[in-house]
């Protein structure tokens, strides 16, 4: 794995506000008006973020490589 930053996004039209991502990666996601939002768009790589994206029941949380644009989660 290279050292690129990760870009976090939440598809707000899919998000149901379950808060699974907030529970698994509390520093990286927060609930705003009943929907999840990344706290910061660009972050350093961290396993908990992949866990959050992969356990989202709606597949609304996306993690991409910031320079490559490669989707790291959820699996395509």
């Amino acid at each position: 794995m290279d050292e690129e930053l990760w870009e976090l996004s939440v598809e707000r039209t899919h998000c149901q506000g379950s808060g699974v991502c907030v529970s698994l990666a509390p520093g990286h996601f927060t609930l705003r008006d009943g929907r999840a939002d990344p706290v910061q768009r660009l972050v350093e790589a961290e396993e908990a973020i992949l866990e959050a994206a992969e356990t989202c029941p709606m597949e609304a949380v996306f993690v991409r490589g910031s320079t490559s644009g490669r989707q790291l989660a959820p699996p395509e």
Binding site: G17, S18, G19, V20, V22, S23, L24, G34
Partner: peptide, 18 residues
């Protein structure tokens, strides 16, 4: 309305909601 808690919330939010 705003959402309900029918599937709970947090880390144990219903796995089969979809």
């Amino acid at each position: 309305d705003p959402g309900h808690l029918g599937f709970a919330a947090g880390p144990h939010f219903c796995l089969g909601s979809v």
